[in-house]
Amino acid sequence: MNLAIFILFGLLCLGGALNLLLQRHPINSALSLIVVMSSLSVLYLLLGAEFLAVAQIIVYSGAIMVLFVFVIMLLNAGEEERTHGSRAAYLAGVPGVLALFTVLASTFFTLRTSFGNARLGAFVATTSDLSRVLFRNLLLPFEVTSILILVAILGAVVLARKEH
């Protein structure tokens, strides 16, 4: 059951990522990115991260992707055109990315016995576990992120404002 859910949503995740790559229109890429993020939240649930699964849906598939779709529609972005820049990126990108993926995947495969298996329910971090660490040990970084968000809001308003 666990394996079946992993295969289903893992394939959905990979398919969405490949679709983001293959689609020419940005709105199609944005919608396939929503598929990737939503299926990742199911994988987080399988790994026992229940708070992150919900936060992934709310923050990523909700807030961030709505912002993306909003900007795509606001700027009326059409299909992207092929230019000489993309050919150079193909020549450098395909071997580089293949090499990176091969190195990562082979490293993980050689260490696969020490990683073991992820059983369902073997480790469940509840929201109270998470908040206990976040609000006791990591209170200062948490407060600093609120300043970061505040600066980001101000920056977004200043940058997107119409100039007179």
Partner: peptide
């Protein structure tokens, strides 16, 4: 049970596809 290496390879694949999309 799902082998942990599957999750890690999936994350490596997502990262690589992200880099490739960033480039092309």
């Amino acid at each position: 049970a799902v082998p942990m290496v599957c999750y890690l390879v999936l994350s490596a694949a997502l990262f690589s596809i992200g880099i490739f999309a960033f480039l092309i």
